[in-house]
Structure formats: C-alpha cells, structure tokens
Design a protein around this nucleic acid. Structure first.
Lengths: 236, 236
DNA sequence: CTTTACAAACCGACCGCCGGTCTGCATATA
DNA sequence: TATATGCAGACCGGCGGTCGGTTTGTAAAG
C-alpha cells in the first residue's frame, strides 16, 4: 500500500542537500520562522536522519553561512594574493566586491533579501552573517592596509583595528538603506534617497580619512546604486 | 489550609514591578534564557496577571529598554538644551556621557554586563538596546552637529547621517573590548589591551575627521579605561 | 555466488519546555 | 449589589531535540 520509499545518500550529499533546503528557507521565511519540520519536509528526510548529520538547528545555520561565505569571498583571495598592484588599487578592488556582487546578480531580489534579513525574526541570522563577513574579510583587508603603510600611502597605527573599523563602516549605511527601501513609493522616498546617497558618500569619505588617503580615493563602485534601489518594486 | 494570598496592585505599580523583575533577570540570565515562569515566580504573579499588563515577552523587553534609556539619557537633555556652550564643547560632553556613566557605577559589574549582552542568547536584546540608544541619542547629536556647521567648526553635508555614523562608530570598538575582556588573565591579555587602546583611539580620531575637526579634539573621556578593564576579575 | 556481520544512514514516536490563551474567580469601588 | 478589572492557573499548540529501533550498503567469510 503506502510506499515507504527511502533513499540513503552519501553523508556529504545529504549534508549539502540539507544545507540547500535550509538556505532557501532561512532566506525566504527567516531563521526563526523556519521550523525543523519545514526543512525535513523539503529535504524529504526524517528527524533522526537530520540529527545524524547536524547537531542542532544553529549549527545548520553556521554551515549555511560558512558555505556562502566561501563562495562569495572566493574573489577575495585573488585580491589578497595580488602582489603586483598598489595597496590603494587593492583597497578599491576590495571595497568594490560588494557592489560588483550586487550589480551582477538580480538586484531587486537582493533588496528583498536585505529587507528580510533586517526583520526582527532574522536578528540572529544577520548577526552571524556579519560575524562571518568579518571573519572572512578582515585578514585580507589587514594585509592591504599593512602594504599601504609600507608604501607610505596609508597611515594607521594598527592595521587590524583599522580593518575592523572599515568593515564596520561598510555597514554603517545599512540603516539609511533600510529606510530608503521602506520608503519606496511613499512621499518620503525622495528624502530617504538623499539620505542614502549621503550615507554612502560619508561612509567612503570616512574610510579615506581613517587611512589618511585623499578625500575621494574610495567609493562604493556603483554610482547608480541609489536610483537603482529606489526603482525596485515596493512590496504590495 | 493553604493561604491563597493575593495582592491586587494598581496597574502602574504592577507594571513597574514586572519591569524590575524582568530587567534583573534579562541582564543576569539573558533574554532567551529567562522564561516567563522565572519572571512570574520572581514577581509573585500568575500568567493571567502578567498578560493583563503586557501583551508579549518582547513587549516586556521593549518596556525595560525604554525605561532604562529614559533614565540613562536623562543627562542628555541638559546637553541638548544647552545653548550657551559651543558645539565642540557640547559634542565632547555628549561623547563623555558613556565614560562618565561607566566611571560612576560599579565598573566590574558593567564589564560582566557587557560580556553577557554579547552572548548569543542575548542577540535580540543587544540589537534592540542599540536601536534604543540610536533612537534616544540621534536627535541630540544631530542638533549639536547642526550647530557646529552653523559655527563653521564642523563641516558635514548631512548632520543626521553624520550623527548616525558617529553613534555607530562609538560601538566600533565593541569587538576589541570583548576580546580584551575575554583575554583577561591569559597570555594574550597584553596584546588585547593594546588593540583595545588602539581601537578606542581610532574611533575618536575617526569622529574628529568625519566632522572635520582637528585630530585629538574628541576622546573617550577616561584615559585609564583600558587598564581599569584589564584589572577587573576574570570569571572562574 | 551466497551468507554473515557490522557500521552507518535513517525513521518517527516521544519528550520537556516554552510563550501565549482562556474561562472564570476575587477584589475594589460606587 | 452591580460593574469593572486585577488576577488565577489549567490548558494549548508547537517547537527543538532525543532515543530505541529498523533499513541499507558493503565487505569479508564460507
């Protein structure tokens, strides 16, 4: 009668499948609103099966983030190992990684993603995501700054601390971005767009000044970012 | 037989009592690890009684934070309404609110508090705390910066955005502070202390430069902060 | 080509707990 | 006594996680 189909898979394959399902669900429904039952149903595996591969739901999240980071920051190694270019050039490349990524992928989707990540229910996910970004990008940026100091184009007393500050700064305009996204299609949209542009400009101006570079050396790398953001469809 | 003691209280009194209990528990055990049962037991009230005054556990947290902020940022109004002093003086006063608070209260306790707040289980609490700080302090700081622009001592294009950035910056050394706290009593303590000092210095240097002030204009306001931190007792 | 043996993958009923609801009672005031 | 409201506590659905047991792949022994 009822077919009790069962598919044994190799550990790595099953692990990846579970990570796939979890990633899709976490980033659509949110971390807290995704239940183990959701994941199990989507993967077609039982509770016992799941907990054979992961020891908790949190670990599953960490697995997702680490896997993502490994992919997203793949380009970073090229910059990190680039010994030809000047420190300033490498810094600019580094800072453009984010905008390059945004431009190359479906931007409206990214905006929705950002919106979802900043909801209360995704607090934990967002924090862990930021931690992951910090972990993966700090070493490379530190190296760049150290090179800049050796070349006398940058001047800081502690490259690691400066790197940390810059990575923090890179998300200092998140608030403005979130407000701009929420303001799409409302009367407050124009003011929010100006604020967002100001926030972007100020963030990179600050990076210049922290490192002792001339104003205007660094930029977001996507001049049309603000209009592009405002042009995405507001949610119904 | 069993005495069914019951104490009807005035709504405001009961509300405050519940906030007191919740505050004590949230900041000792953490938000997620504090159950409703814990709070109810401590307050000596039933579930029905509690939910008559608050509609959820989250709302209780918001109540705690708002009440705290109203007290902690009480001093800020004096600065905000101070029309005598120069913008730079007011900025310095504003930035010293944090160190003044730390100095005046039991510092080892504050360190433990900070440590606890940064644990995973308090993620939500910490985020909401930061949001509250932002909400309460941004208007005052914006006003100060606007004054500074009028007086031509500061130069920014968007005072509100600059204020937001500075408030973000003020917690940019949280990472270094956390590492230093965790390193107390270990061989890595000295290096962590140097990093922390560097992070503090860089944060305020950055504030100077964001606002176009001479280097060294602003500071944390507590030169002995780092040794004082390292001297607190590490946990067993 | 079996048979046997064992580890690994997997199942799903079950558990403890948590935040929140609901019905109804106790108490203060008029 | 009538009414409003502070309050009690049994109850609920759902959650993440556990555990004893079953199925499956595999490889050595017969």
């Amino acid at each position: 009668m009822s077919e009790k189909r069962r598919t044994n898979m190799k550990p790595e394959a099953r692990r990846n499948q579970l990570l796939d399902c979890a990633q899709a669900l976490f980033f659509s429904k949110g971390f807290e609103d995704t239940t183990m039952a959701d994941i199990l149903q989507m993967a077609g595996v039982s509770k016992g099966g799941f907990y054979h591969h992961f020891k908790s739901k949190d670990e599953l999240l960490f697995g997702v983030l680490d896997r993502m980071a490994a992919i997203v920051f793949g380009n970073m190694e090229a910059i990190a190992e680039d010994t030809e270019s000047s420190a300033v050039e490498r810094l600019r490349s580094f800072l453009h990684l984010r905008s390059d990524y945004l431009k190359q992928h479906d931007y409206p989707g990214q905006v929705e993603f950002f919106r979802a990540m900043n909801a209360d229910q995704n607090n934990f996910l967002l924090t862990k995501f930021k931690e992951t970004v910090m972990r993966f990008s700090k070493p490379a940026l530190t190296g760049i700054i150290e090179q800049g100091c050796r070349e006398n184009t940058m001047s800081v007393t502690n490259a690691g601390i400066a790197a940390e500050m810059i990575i923090t700064l890179s998300s200092s305009f998140d608030n403005a971005l979130l407000r701009a996204i929420e303001a799409r299609g409302t009367p407050a949209a124009d003011e929010a767009a100006v604020d967002l542009q100001d926030a972007l400009d100020l963030a990179f101006l600050t990076i210049d000044r922290v490192l002792g570079l001339p104003d205007g050396t660094t930029d977001f790398g996507w001049p049309e970012a603000v209009p592009a953001t405002m042009a995405t469809r507001p949610p119904v």
